[in-house]
Computed example of a mutant assay.
Amino acid sequence: MAMVLQMTTFLQQYLYAQAHEAPKSSDAIRLGILSTANINSAAIINPAKSHGGVIVSAIASRDLKPAQETAKKYGIPKAYGPYEELLNEPGIDAVYISLPNGMHGEWTKKALNAGKHVLLEKPFTANAEEAREIVKLAVEKNLVLVEAFHWQFHPAAHAVKAIIDSGKYGQVLRTSARMTSPAGSIPRSDIRWEYNLAGGSLMDMTYVVSSTRYFVGPVTTPREVAHAKARPSPHDPKVDDAMEATLRFDVEGRMVESKIYSDMWRANVFGLIPRIWEAPSIEIELEHATIYFYNFMMPHIYHYVTIYDKRTRKTTTEKHYSGGPKWGTRGEAWWSTYRYQLEAFAEAVRGQQPPHWIELGDSIAQMETIDMVYEKSGLGKRQPTQRMV
């Protein structure tokens, strides 16, 4: 289902970008993109078209030709190859890094050292050690660095969090998060299967950890990973096709148990029917209610939140496409998670306080949690690409 959602959001973002293109202000943030990854159009290029304060002014690839082709396709003024040429461009204020996971740390350091603010695609880095390194550098340079967990910027996420934090239904008892993609929907040639690029299902589908920590919070890392089982790839036993784990968090003196499941090669029903209905979802059980958030990753396409009240035995359903407890009257129903994220990033670059933000300490804790799961599973934590070549 994850790949279906991704393709749908590509189309949606393209259509809305054409209908809502905004004139650019004279002081617009000039943003460059490192890599020509497919995600770029939905994650940054099309969202920027409707933002008057952001211009995608350059894109870089290892080699110049792919950058030139992508620049021509999307109307980006400049193309560079290799990446260093873009970072050396004084007219670039910030960069979006969508390189393979194992290269995030290396190129974030180079971008920060070049004086650029960084919107860094998830997962933050290959592991927690590398996360601490780039956070330290960002703080030293006084530059904006944020992990692109776009889903957390959407009003639907804030609405669910507000319900939990209100205390109306008591404390969180347990959670269960799932994200899958049908077998064959991610080709085996895809970089997400490459160990040397810090690939694996938990790295790519790290949303299951992010959503768990966000709704259980405020917490940092789990007290323990009680169980973790990887289904290794038949092509590389170091890479997880799937990962299931049980995390135990200490929350205000209580233990909350959270189950996570990621699967980049989810078996078809009867070997024939892809499980396209399995959108990324999380169930949160509280003392007096059970909340189910369907499609938390891309709620702008479609989502619903059901609340089963244990006391009344009634179920209510909610949907939240704009507004909410953090954005208020700001935003539009057609804004994607990526568009909300860009709004927040632009404000941070301008020295303002965004309605929602992902703190650097949270990104370190996210990678610490992922490391703990990989270690418990026996696969071992992922390593940066430059340290393996």
Results as ranks from 00 to 15, higher is better:
Val4Met: 14
Gln6His: 12
Met7Ala: 14
Leu11Ser: 14
Leu15Met: 12
Ala17Trp: 09
Ala19Cys: 02
His20Thr: 14
Ala22Cys: 10
Ser25Cys: 04
Leu31Gln: 07
Leu31Glu: 01
Thr36Ser: 04
Ala37Pro: 02
Ala43Lys: 12
Pro47Trp: 02
Ala48Thr: 05
Lys49Cys: 08
Ser50Phe: 05
Val54Ala: 06
Ser57Thr: 14
Arg62Leu: 12
Leu64Pro: 02
Leu64Lys: 15
Lys65Asn: 10
Thr70Asp: 01
Gly75Asp: 11
Ala79Pro: 06
Pro82Trp: 03
Pro82Cys: 05
Leu86Gly: 04
Asn88Trp: 05
Ile92Leu: 08
Ala94Lys: 04
Ala94Leu: 11
Tyr96Glu: 03
Leu99Trp: 04
Leu99Lys: 05
Pro100Cys: 10
Thr108Asp: 03
Gly115Lys: 02
Lys116Val: 14
Lys116Phe: 13
His117Asp: 15
Val118Asp: 06
Glu121Asp: 15
Thr125His: 01
Ala128Ile: 04
Ala131Cys: 05
Ile134Asp: 03
Val135Cys: 01
Lys136Trp: 00
Ala138Ile: 10
Ala138Asp: 11
Asn142Phe: 00
Leu143Ile: 11
Leu145Thr: 14
Glu147Gly: 14
Ala148Gly: 08
Phe149Leu: 13
Val160Thr: 07
Lys161Glu: 14
Ile163Glu: 05
Ile163His: 00
Lys168Met: 05
Gly170Phe: 05
Ser176Glu: 15
Thr180Asn: 01
Thr180His: 02
Pro182Thr: 12
Ala183Leu: 09
Pro187Asn: 12
Ser189Asn: 12
Ser189Asp: 15
Ile191Glu: 13
Tyr195Met: 00
Gly199Val: 08
Ser201Tyr: 00
Leu202Trp: 11
Met203Val: 07
Met203Cys: 11
Val209Tyr: 01
Ser210Cys: 03
Ser210Trp: 04
Arg213Asn: 13
Arg213Leu: 14
Tyr214Ala: 09
Phe215Tyr: 15
Gly217Pro: 09
Pro218Arg: 07
Thr220Asn: 15
Thr220Ser: 15
Thr221Ile: 14
Thr221Cys: 12
Glu224Thr: 15
Ala230Ser: 13
Arg231Asn: 00
Ser233Ile: 07
Ser233Met: 07
Pro234Ser: 06
Pro237Gln: 13
Asp240Trp: 10
Phe249Ser: 13
Gly253Phe: 08
Trp265Gln: 01
Arg266His: 12
Phe270Thr: 11
Leu272Glu: 10
Ile273Asp: 06
Ser281Tyr: 04
Ile284Met: 07
Glu285Tyr: 06
Glu285Ile: 08
His288Thr: 05
Ile291Gly: 01
Asn295Lys: 02
Phe296Trp: 08
Met297Asn: 10
Ile301Lys: 06
Val305Asp: 06
Thr317Tyr: 02
Lys319Asp: 00
Tyr321His: 09
Tyr321Gly: 03
Pro325Ser: 08
Pro325Gln: 03
Arg330Phe: 10
Arg339Cys: 00
Leu342Phe: 05
Ala344His: 07
Ala346Val: 09
Ala346Asp: 08
Glu347Asn: 07
Glu347His: 09
Ala348Gln: 14
Val349Gly: 00
Arg350Trp: 10
Glu359Ala: 13
Glu359Pro: 03
Glu359Leu: 06
Leu360Tyr: 01
Leu360Trp: 04
Gly361Arg: 01
Ser363Thr: 15
Ile364Val: 15
Thr369Cys: 08
Tyr374Gln: 04
Glu375Arg: 11
Leu379Asn: 09
Gly380Gln: 09
Arg382Lys: 10
Arg387Gly: 04
Arg387Asn: 12
